[in-house]
Nucleic acid binder design. Structure first.
Length: 352
DNA sequence: AAACCGGGGAG
DNA sequence: CTCCCAGGTTT
């Protein structure tokens, strides 16, 4: 039996039952694919349900304010996905009358849809015979065929695409693509794969040569920069505070935050003098460091060292937002979590 | 080709 | 602690 047939039978026995597998609606399939980029199924599932409930059609999503979409995306990370999601929704709704392009070539032209996602939507929603190549496919094929190329190299991706193109069946490409990804996620896992129950145990080069734990080979190394953030939480007599939207091309673009002192040098911020110079208009009563033990928040390329400062003022912050209204804004998850745990302290001066 | 972009969970 | 997840965009 050939590889695609073995995969099919494995899949029919072991597949995960996921809501986006119960539909052929391109909108729902597109939504699921964007959410699942660099995201585990278990983490993306509640967001998929929430988005489909809040925005049942591409028109609902297109007509929504970007801030609402970012707030619903809050905590999922890679926020450019949410911004691109909105841009593509508007294009599909208003330029294509709500109909998604029905093929790989046109899908890949849309914002937020790259090689993988175009192939996934084209095959799953429209039965186009085009293979997906994601982390699961790299792992499964590199092991079965004993491919030792560096998967972080662009040429290697083409190599895997060509191989997958020879394997994907003409009759049910959607099943093949989902099967190979589920197989990689459930059985041929990065660590401790279940080789004893594997249908490819006889032909898997990696297993036969005892190098399952060495494949796939990935060389690229990311260097993580340290970054130091001191958030300034001004609170006036009416429990109003100052927030701002991040606009720079940087992490968390278009999410909200408290005013911040932001630097890449490990140098203690002189909060008092900074407030006196940059916020001279505000009549400060007292300044409290809320977390003497810094919060460390790790991103893929940055390690954030964070302090939150409570700054009471007798003034009325006319540009401020009521503390109880903060949940109407999308924050980076580290700030959101801080707000949740310190709300009582800030509004009632009681310890968390 | 390389840099950049979140957050979480497994081992 | 390290690794990596149904990747994509920008430089």
């Amino acid at each position: 039996m050939n590889l695609s047939n073995k995969l099919k039978y494995w899949y029919l026995e072991n597949k995960r039952h996921l809501p986006w597998r119960e539909t052929k609606d391109p909108y729902a399939i597109w939504l699921s694919e964007i959410i699942l980029q660099q995201t585990r199924v278990i983490q993306g599932l509640p967001y998929y349900e929430a988005f489909l409930k809040t925005y049942p059609t591409v028109f609902d999503l297109a007509n929504a304010p970007e801030d609402d979409i970012l707030r619903l995306w809050q905590g999922l990370g890679y926020y450019s996905r949410a911004r691109n999601l909105h841009e593509t929704a508007k294009k599909v709704a208003f330029e294509y009358n709500g109909s998604f392009p029905n093929n790989y070539k046109d899908l890949i032209l849309l914002k937020g849809i790259g090689d993988y996602t175009a192939a996934a939507i084209a095959s799953i929603a429209f039965d186009e015979v085009v293979p997906v190549v994601d982390g699961n496919v790299f792992r499964v094929l590199s092991r079965i065929y004993g491919i030792t190329s560096d998967i972080s190299a662009g040429a290697t991706k083409k190599e895997f695409q060509q191989l997958a193109q020879t394997l994907i069946p003409q009759n049910n490409p959607a099943l093949f693509n989902q099967a190979i990804m589920d197989f990689g996620a459930i059985q041929c896992t990065p660590k401790s794969p279940d080789c004893s129950a594997c249908p490819f145990i006889k032909e898997c080069i990696a297993y036969q040569t005892n190098q399952v734990d060495k494949l796939p080979i990935k060389i690229s190394k990311v260097k993580v920069k340290n970054r130091y953030l001191d958030f300034l939480i001004f609170v006036d007599q009416n429990n109003c505070t100052l927030i701002e939207q991040r606009t720079q091309k940087d992490i968390w673009q278009k999410l909200y935050q408290f005013p911040v002192i932001d630097r890449f040098e490990n140098k203690k911020a002189d909060i008092n003098s900074i407030i006196q110079t940059q916020y001279a208009k505000i009549n400060v009563q007292n300044i409290t460091l809320m977390n003497p033990k810094q919060i460390v928040h790790v991103l893929s390329h940055q390690k954030l060292h964070i302090h939150f400062w409570l700054i009471n003022t007798a003034d009325v912050l006319t540009e401020g937002v009521q503390w109880s209204e903060l949940n109407k804004f999308g924050f980076p998850i580290v700030i959101h979590n801080f707000i949740q745990s310190y709300s009582n302290y800030i509004t009632n001066q009681t310890l968390p």
